[in-house]
């Protein structure tokens, strides 16, 4: 029972908004883990959580919370 409880906790998933769309991600996932999940490792990618920039140095220890609004952005062609 204890094991399955722990497993349940580990598997808990939370709903967040990523680039304007509802997404379910693992509970307490960090920004770094999210970047990994999205296949963006090694890519230039800037992150904003609830309209505040999260610098790259903080990606590995910034945990995401239910309901967070996350923007993952990069550079595209523009004038």
């Amino acid at each position: 029972m204890r094991d399955s409880g722990r497993q349940g906790l580990y598997n808990a998933r939370v709903e967040v908004m990523i680039n304007g769309q509802k997404q379910v991600i693992p509970n307490s996932a960090t920004v770094s883990q999210l970047i990994e999940l999205r296949g963006l490792v090694g890519r230039a990618c800037a992150v904003e959580v609830n309209k505040e920039l999260v610098p790259k140095a903080e990606h590995s220890h910034r945990a995401l919370a239910p309901g967070d609004h996350i923007e993952l952005v990069t550079l595209v062609g523009g004038g």
Binding site: G20, C45, L72, T74, L75, V76, G77, G78, G79
Partner: peptide
């Protein structure tokens, strides 16, 4: 050269990313 900041749709309609070419 100027660039824009956009959500992580990394590829254009040809499947190209700006940063692969710039």
């Amino acid at each position: 050269v100027t660039v824009a900041v956009r959500r992580d749709r990394l590829m254009n309609e040809h499947g190209e990313s700006l940063l692969d070419s710039l």
